[in-house]
Nucleic acid binder design. Structure first.
Lengths: 251, 251
DNA sequence: CGCCGACTTGACATTAATCAAATGTAGTGG
DNA sequence: CCACTACATTTGATTAATGTCAAGTCGGCG
């Protein structure tokens, strides 16, 4: 519930390097997926600065005017909403190759805060210029639609998680989801570091920090994983997957 | 949890009338919003059949191949997900002027079931043909992006609701949301009929049918609303809004 | 009239939240 | 290297919110 209130001064630490999709290791997962060399060049030309965001720095804040989408190049982010009563809900954790800011298109203002979980880098994508490209680059447009659609289905999965799953199941689903995203990026699917605090995990999953801590202890005792601070090793991914899917035999 | 299992035979009851945006009362809320007469005609030309879907009939089912988006012309729908363990989560209730099927773009298969809550009508929008229009109709494309983005923000609000709100707050938010959508459609914001069962409401809000029933009784006793079967009259919308926002003084 | 499904209400159980310590960890300065 | 602080995490005891189970009631329809 309590907001960490990172220093608001650290907005964007601009790096004069221009971003380039062609030589970015994430281009198979990110916006330029499937583009030919020619189209890739055109996209490169509109992509703006490559920006560094320090740990706990804001990438953007709720109600900021919307001008850019951001693609995560390095690092991790969290996005969260706050309502009038001060209740906060983390709506996602974003990693390299994922797009931030699509929720702002509908009103031209950002609907959430985005904060870096570690020192990170993003590519700035001026949305107006991206729209100009759409007319002549159907492959780009199609992939952009897929990315928005994917965000919709991701959120639907979270709705299922928050609306119908027990604590244990939520947490298993969370771990399995992280594992699969790291796999897609060429990292180990069983060993990784949590970039977010227990509190952030709990907030995202609709649970308290104490519940997360207890679940970690229990999973460890059950031999499902090893944990040391934020370092995680999944010892029994199959059982975790079954728990997440709700198909585990008994409990 | 238990699925009503509507007759799967009632897929689409085709009506030979062609849909037309120009004379549809929903065009200010729906996909053609803001289009000039010329563009509207072009959109009309690609829009396929106008389809009737009987109450409890499926508009589409999970894993069906994706070819069309659907705009609700008349009636109401619900969409829901089911996971491997059989857990079900209603992800939305759609009314006239709202678009169904955007979650299918990412994989070319529908990610949820869509069922009519009453006898309804939709306009079929062949997505491949819509994409062809995007190149030459930037206004249409922009509005389509707004609609997808709006769906993302809607789902984020539901995440906040499911992750952080108490039962009472969730239900107030649900009622207030319905009221505002009816207002936007020119209907009363204080008197309307619930098109969905208590069970559906509970499922959507992550609560049980008993909780919904008790909340209705309590709100009635507190003078916040009148209820008779599915007929609702909001007597104190201001307090309901404050409850939904989490800004109500005490409880 | 009587049945059926949808809803309501009550009694009780359970899950996860809350409250309260205790412990661990990282960073800082001596 | 160590003491010290601030903060994050773990663990335990208790409570509160909501779920579960079990009757009942209501309304519509054949």
């Amino acid at each position: 519930m309590s907001n960490p209130s990172p220093a608001p001064s650290t907005f964007l630490n601009v790096n004069s390097l221009r971003a380039s999709c062609s030589n970015c290791s994430m281009h198979q997962l990110c916006l330029p997926m499937g583009l030919g060399g020619n189209d890739m060049d055109k996209l490169d030309q509109i992509i703006g600065r490559r920006c560094k965001v320090p740990r706990d720095g804001y990438l953007y804040r709720m109600d900021d005017p919307f001008t850019n989408l951001y693609a995560v190049r390095v690092g991790h982010f969290k996005t969260y909403q706050i309502n009038a009563g001060g209740e906060q809900q983390i709506t996602g954790f974003q990693m390299a190759g994922e797009l931030l800011g699509m929720d702002a298109i509908s009103t031209d203002r950002h609907h959430c805060d985005a904060i870096a979980l570690e020192d990170s880098e993003v590519c700035e994508i001026p949305f107006a210029r991206l729209e100009e490209l759409f007319g002549s680059m159907p492959v780009l447009l199609r992939h952009f639609h897929r990315m928005m659609s994917q965000e919709i289905t991701r959120e639907q999965s979270v709705m299922l998680l928050l609306g119908n799953m027990r604590a244990e199941q939520r947490f298993a689903a969370f771990l399995v989801n992280l594992a699969s995203r790291y796999t897609a990026r060429g990292y180990s699917s069983t060993s990784f570091q949590l970039r977010m605090s227990r509190e952030d995990i709990g907030n995202y999953l609709g649970l308290t920090i104490e519940s997360i801590s207890r679940l970690l202890s229990r999973f460890k005792k059950q031999g499902l994983l090893k944990v040391s601070n934020r370092e995680i090793e999944l010892l029994d991914p199959a059982t975790l997957k079954a728990m997440a899917a709700g198909t585990e035999i008994c409990s």
